[in-house]
Design a binder for these strands. Structure first.
Length: 659
DNA sequence: CGTAAGATAACAGGCATTGG
DNA sequence: CCAATGCCTGTTATCTTACG
């Protein structure tokens, strides 16, 4: 039994007898089989403790050309594995340092040349390490993305929740009170009371006040108050034929409220009192003097409030209700139906279906988990006002992207307390059929605007900037499939970039006509003019190229992207003689490049007969052609001189043709 | 020197089959 | 069940080129 030597850190490759064996399968007892990937005829089984528990018999041989690693080679590759591992794990990894040190260390110990031969080449190692380094980064990003996808809400679910919220907003509060039917019995009860205090409604749900005559009592009290010192006023919104709500929209405290009501009902001494809260800021505007609170029980604590906003106050339902009522009443759109909080609640009681009457422009304000305000609407601002299609598309305007679903991308807000203001602003714009998408609001001014609305009773347009050149984005249903990079396609399909690459290749092999754009330098041409020497500067280069371009009828300003002089790549061996006088000209489009290349031969008979135009080649391409030239000359040289066929253009029997 | 992108050979690993 | 072998599909590592 001997210990096995793992080649990589993932324990997928082992070294056995200096051959690389790869993991095949796990056996039932936990041992792992490895086999030679090339010939597959040699396999070794390794148990859990990394000990070899089965070896191929002595007669087994590697078939084919399986690579046997030299000792030095394995040492070099192992060192390389370590460097790569460091690149993955060490945050402060420096490639040049690690690579240099590794190379130096090995060359001190072993044969200099062998190490140089087997140690990975610098560019390869650099790129690989850089990739490994990024892998770590990518992993972090991937974790975040996974988190995102796990938490993401499907739009259908999101939408269901939203509509459910509209149709059953009390469900949360009434989980333990399933006596909803009781409300039906009391529906004749006047709206005033229903809407004045939600606490009464909650009390009704508990049946505490079931047999109490609210209306008479309330009217009696009202009358007595009118006759008395305090004068009260109930404000009606004429346009909507409904009262401006000044209900306290606090829901969280329902439990305590119910508790406080209970002992009272037992005594049976109910009274309705009218409390007057001092409004702040004090105002003479009667139409907004609506902060009086009518309570059914003096012992119920009333939270005093006013509409004016402090610096970072979160907007309550009543703030939004007020503004929505204003928008509705001042809108010129007769088809507009704008539902604020209490209207939404009223709709529920009437079993309203949000899909009804699609011809209406509908705007709903939706409270999400008591934390956030968003707008749900069927108004599509990009459609004309007259186009009242019967098909409703629903749009969500959410300035915070709270649920990470957002259909219409709007400007992001900075702090989290302004969502209510944004909801109002969106509704205001939508009511005028303007697209909130195009506007960026000044959050600070929004509060001031709202407060001036409270003070003076007139809601100015919120201050905004128009964003003109923004691309409208509606997520996530429009995944456009234009020209995408390999990596993007891969991400879309959920496969690796290589898969895209190989699939493309397969497609290309089986179906023709794929016009896949290739990277590289296809737009460049080499200009070599043997009449002139080396240009001293760029201007001189341009002067040299221009007459040639003119002769070819090519307009420089339109087609030439840029040009530059290139130097000889193997200046090392023959510096003095190897001076390349070549200018690379890059064209903006392929047509011009092809024209230049095609027409190049017409130069031969002209004054530019010494100017040569060839496709720009990469170093390896040039090397390949050099090799081919050499072979050509060799082959041509083998022919007896009289048998060498030289045609009219002086070509030899063997031309250059890369395979 | 670091990085990006695409091409490609080698590789990973599941599945199926055959034989002992 | 283990071992040997082959196939398929997608992955990984490397190479090449380019850019700033």
């Amino acid at each position: 039994m001997e210990k096995i030597e793992y080649f990589d850190l993932k324990k997928c490759i082992i070294l056995f007898d200096n051959y690389k064996l790869h993991k095949v399968a796990s056996n039932a007892d936990g041992s792992v089989r490895f086999r030679c990937q090339t010939c597959k005829s040699i396999s070794v089984t390794v148990d859990k403790t990394d000990l070899i528990c089965r070896k191929p018999d002595a007669s087994s041989r590697h078939l084919g050309q399986c690579k046997k690693y030299f000792t030095i080679e394995t040492i070099c590759l192992k060192n390389y594995e370590e460097i790569k591992h460091d690149a993955r794990t060490e945050p402060s990894f420096s490639f040049s340092k690690s690579y240099g040190e590794g190379l130096q260390q090995l060359q001190e110990q072993y044969d200099l040349q062998l190490v140089a031969q087997y140690y990975p080449k610098e560019p390869t190692a650099r790129v690989t390490c850089s990739k490994n380094k990024n892998q770590e980064k990518d992993l972090q990003i991937q974790l975040i993305q996974e988190d995102f996808y796990q938490k993401r809400t499907e739009f259908s679910i999101y939408f269901t929740n939203l509509t459910h919220r509209i149709t059953h907003p009390y469900e949360q509060d009434l989980d333990d009170v399933d006596q909803y039917k009781d409300t039906e019995e009391e529906e004749e009860m006047e709206k005033i009371i229903e809407q004045t205090i939600s606490k009464i409604k909650l009390a009704k749900l508990k049946n505490s006040y079931k047999n109490f005559d609210f209306i008479d009592n309330f009217r009696e009290r009202l009358k007595s108050q009118e006759n008395g010192v305090i004068q009260t006023q109930v404000v009606y919104d004429q346009e909507n034929n409904s009262m401006v709500s000044n209900r306290c929209s606090k829901r969280k405290g329902t439990q305590e409220e119910k508790e406080s009501i209970k002992p009272k009902t037992k005594t049976g001494t109910l009274s309705i009192e009218i409390k007057q809260e001092k409004q702040s800021p004090p105002t003479t505007s009667t139409s907004f003097d609506n902060s009086r609170i009518y309570t059914a029980d003096e012992r119920i604590q009333v939270e005093p409030f006013n509409f004016a906003l402090s610096d970072d106050q979160w907007l309550m339902g009543r703030h939004i209700d007020l503004a929505f009522d204003y928008i509705q009443s001042h809108s010129r759109n007769s088809f507009l139906f704008i539902a604020n909080n209490w209207k939404c609640e009223e709709l529920i009681r009437n079993n309203f279906l949000i899909h009804e009457s699609p011809e209406m422009d509908k705007i709903f304000v939706v409270n999400v988990n008591n934390l956030h305000w968003i707008i749900l609407t069927n108004i599509n601002p990009s459609e004309s006002e007259n186009n009242q299609s019967l098909e409703q598309n629903w749009f969500v305007y959410d300035n915070q992207n709270f649920h990470r679903v957002h259909m219409v991308q709007s400007e992001h807000q900075i702090s989290s307390n302004d969502c209510g203001l944004f909801a109002i602003a969106y509704a205001q714009l939508l009511a005028e059929r303007l697209d909130p998408f195009n506007y960026k609001f000044d959050q600070r001014l929004m509060r001031i605007t709202y407060n001036s609305f409270i003070t003076f009773g007139f809601l100015y347009d919120f201050y905004f900037e128009i964003i003109a050149e923004k691309q409208k984005q509606i997520f996530p249903f429009n995944v456009s499939c234009g020209e995408k990079k390999q990596i993007e396609i891969a991400k879309l399909l959920g496969v690796s970039p290589k898969c895209v690459s190989s699939t493309e290749k397969r497609y290309e092999e089986t179906c023709s006509g794929s016009d896949r754009s290739r990277p590289g330098r296809r737009r460049k041409l080499n200009f070599r003019d043997e009449r002139l020497g080396i240009g001293a500067n760029e201007d001189e280069d341009i002067e040299k190229v221009d007459p040639v371009l003119n002769a070819l009828n090519i307009d420089r300003s339109k087609t030439v992207k840029r040009q530059r002089r290139i130097k000889s790549s193997n200046s090392g061996d023959n510096t003095s003689k190897k001076v390349l006088d070549m200018i690379v000209v890059e064209f903006t489009d392929d047509a011009a490049r092809l024209k230049a290349l095609r027409d190049a031969r017409t130069l031969r008979g002209t004054e530019h007969k010494d100017a040569y135009i060839n496709p720009d080649k990469t170093a390896s391409e040039r090397a390949l052609e050099r090799e081919l030239r050499k072979r050509r000359n060799e082959l041509n040289g083998k022919f007896p001189l009289n048998q060498v066929r030289i045609d009219s253009e002086g070509r030899h029997r063997y031309g250059i043709k890369p395979d």
